[in-house]
Design a protein around this nucleic acid. Structure first.
Lengths: 239, 239
DNA sequence: CAGCGTGTTTGACTCGGCGTCAAACTTTTT
DNA sequence: AAAAAGTTTGACGCCGAGTCAAACACGCTG
């Protein structure tokens, strides 16, 4: 019995991943409103009933898609935060991770925006909410550790709390995502490349915090080359 | 005939405002997903058919709620931008307008987030989309004019484009809204007051841009008092 | 004021999609 | 081989967005 149980559980996980893959694809194509569980059932070649053995509601499914993306984001962040250098250089590596993530998950933020709605959370399963929280805190802590180090070593003024710093960076990142995903706004601002706006804005916040070495006083070109080579060897998107 | 036509049109507008009022209330209470047009019909004491004489779809209705809030935001911005003072002081008045707006429209951003979804826009009427665009550009231009002035008079470095500056400020504002509306994140960052985070972050971006006079070199307390007295005499929320 | 015509409002109805669950099917045990 | 336990299915119930034929209101005319 327990021999087959392990295999069953493995197969279950494979099936769940398959469902999340297809759900992600359909979410991207049609948006959440037009995500149709009958269509998903057809795509994964399992019945709707089987889908409901994995996900308690449609919201739960969307949360699973979002959480998987968030896990990849946390992986990237933790990888980036291992970069060897001064605190602000490490922060910069995280900035690259954001860009990398944005390129590979143009969908994530659209789904993340849905999660704002209270009615969303109350329809998702406890397990999945916990998992989402966990991945979110991995991201938060990766950034926060660097901020803490920066304050400790004097790269950031001691007047700031690390959490304030982290929140400001999260805010500018989310905000730039939101802003650049509005075609109207992009048109008004006469901007075409969202990634370079992201980098520009993150630098603004770091400079505003007085995070040494400030942009004007230090050439980050060499750092950027190292980050690309050491952290994202396979990234062709670069800038 | 044309005598009654004017009255009819006026009554029509009153009815539409009533519907938007109630829709706003129900959106706040239940979220977009759970906004029920039968319930709305009951609340406004008109039939569902009549609601559909005003709004082409449920999305169109939500867009109307959002646009009305956005119009109030644009009004506040234009009022704030009339503040007499240096460019950064005028920008600060806009920051106050943001706070004022956030307090009176905790709902707006939740609805705005929905608008991100492509499927949303394609179901709204052309008229209403145009109006939304118009109000958005009023907000953009109010900020952008100040940025232009600042560059012209040397308060901002000439290396920046005004639109970059405006977009950065929009991004930090939206981002802070998003971030502070996630209870998880607020808990991780051990933060309770979203408004003060908003002000802190906006200052960060201005300082990062090198917008003179920089926070460390100037005491804005007197400016803040003037803004409160001259622009928002009726605001009790303050800080 | 009755009767007709135009313009307005209604709510019963359709239709699509989420979520369920009894029945069909598969695997394991006896 | 047959029964029991476990797994999968898809037809169905129900809810809610959007429609439209019919009821209603209003004004006009003789």
């Amino acid at each position: 019995m327990s021999v087959t149980a392990a295999r069953k559980e493995r197969e279950r996980m494979v099936r769940e991943e398959l469902m999340i893959d297809h759900a992600r694809r359909l979410l991207l194509k049609h948006g959440y409103q037009n995500l149709n569980l009958d269509e998903l059932a057809g795509a994964v070649e399992y019945s709707k009933g089987t889908i409901y053995l994995h996900f308690s509601t449609k919201e739960d499914l969307a949360l699973a898609v979002s959480t998987r993306a968030l896990r990849e984001r946390a992986d990237l962040f933790e990888r980036a935060s291992g970069f060897q250098g001064r605190s602000r250089e490490r922060m910069r590596a995280i900035g690259f991770a954001c860009a990398q993530f944005a390129v590979h998950h143009r969908d994530y933020f659209n789904v993340e925006m849905m999660l704002k709605s209270v009615s969303f959370w109350e329809k998702a399963s406890e397990d999945r909410k916990r998992n989402h929280s966990h991945q979110a805190s991995r991201c938060f802590e990766a950034v926060n550790r660097i901020a803490l180090d920066a304050i400790k070593c004097g790269d950031l003024p001691r007047t700031h709390r690390a959490e304030q710093v982290t929140l400001a960076l999260i805010a500018i990142t989310m905000g730039t995502h939101c802003a650049t995903s509005q075609p109207d706004l992009m048109h008004l601002a006469r901007i075409s490349d969202p990634i370079s706006v992201m980098r520009f804005n993150q630098d603004l916040v770091c400079d505003g915090l007085g995070w040494k070495p400030v942009l004007a006083r230090f050439d980050y070109a060499a750092t950027d080359r190292r980050i690309r080579a050491e952290i994202f060897p396979a990234a062709s998107w670069l800038v």
